[in-house]
């Protein structure tokens, strides 16, 4: 081993990756926390433009006292015809902490958006996406994919230094960066009356305001599952080494 091949040179994460990673992590924590509070206030999901307590839900969660709560004045038809939409007044005092919940959600969202844009711009221009994230053509064989899945199921996972990512790792990062995060930001914006007034195509893109809310929920759940698997893999491949690689260790230390 007189010569170290190019692709085995130890590389830790770049400083800008570390910065974006931790700001994104913190904002994600606050977004999940406040997002769960917001869901507790109205723990029902719908499909289409509208959905409320007087309409059937697509999914309901027993996560607060607002779940299937009573306390409504009698239903009154809006029109004098069969199957008329209804109106009723709420007399029940609901759980609602959205005053800080919403403000915290939007504040954290700004941090996610800015760290995301910072990451994306640098990842494109430094070649990080092209060189480290997009799987090489010869990596994409069924054999290698099966091998990588088998490796992940073993008791311990080989520790890869910094951005020498494994195949499944590359694919999951690309899904998070280019599918889940843009979807969660855009569906979030689709729930805004001011933004959809200026950008009405968002409502078309996500099948309506309530559909956008439902997609927002599933994208958040997918990101949460990603987080759990991500942390699990970090533990399996050496928690201490991985944390050092994402924080204080850098390429200059190796020289």
């Amino acid at each position: 081993m007189a010569l170290t091949p190019r692709n085995e040179i130890k590389t830790y994460h770049s400083t800008w990756v570390k910065i974006a990673h931790w700001i994104g992590t913190c904002s994600f924590f606050f977004l999940i926390f406040s997002g769960f509070e917001i869901l507790m206030v109205h723990p029902r999901l719908y499909w289409g433009e509208t959905g409320n307590d007087l309409m059937p839900a697509f999914l309901e969660f027993p996560i607060s006292r607002n779940y299937q709560h009573g306390g409504w004045t009698s239903l009154e038809p809006i029109f004098n015809r069969p199957n008329s939409p209804m109106s009723a007044g709420r007399t029940y005092s609901i759980f609602n902490e959205n005053g800080w919940g919403r403000s915290l959600h939007f504040l954290a969202a700004w941090f996610l958006v800015f760290s995301g844009l910072f990451y994306l711009i640098l990842a494109i221009f430094t070649g990080h996406i092209k060189n480290n994230l997009i799987p090489k053509f010869n990596e994409l064989t069924l054999e290698l994919i099966i091998k990588d899945i088998k490796d992940h199921l073993k008791a311990s996972l080989a520790y890869l230094q910094g951005p020498q990512y494994g195949l499944l790792q590359k694919i999951s990062y690309l899904v998070v960066i280019f599918i889940l995060l843009p979807t969660i930001v855009l569906t979030g914006l689709t729930m805004s009356p001011a933004i959809t007034a200026s950008h009405p195509y968002l409502l078309t893109l996500f099948f309506g305001a309530q559909s956008a809310r439902t997609i927002h929920f599933f994208a958040a759940s997918s990101l949460f599952i990603f987080l759990i698997v991500h942390v699990w893999m970090i533990i399996k491949s050496g928690f201490k080494k991985q944390m050092l690689a994402m924080t204080i260790k850098n390429n200059a230390d190796e020289k």
Binding site: E49, T50, N52, D53, L54, M55, W72, T73, I78, P85, M86, S87, A88, G89, R90, T91, P193, A194, I195, T196, A197, S198, P200, L203
Partner: peptide, 28 residues
């Protein structure tokens, strides 16, 4: 929002058949 959005843009308007059930909340 004031800097990036068109402040005069109209919110989407719907058809009569889109009118839905409507809960009254807050003071009733």
């Amino acid at each position: 929002q004031r800097a990036l959005l068109d402040v005069k843009a109209l919110a989407k308007e719907y058809n009569f058949s889109d009118i839905s059930s409507f809960p009254a909340t807050g003071s009733i």
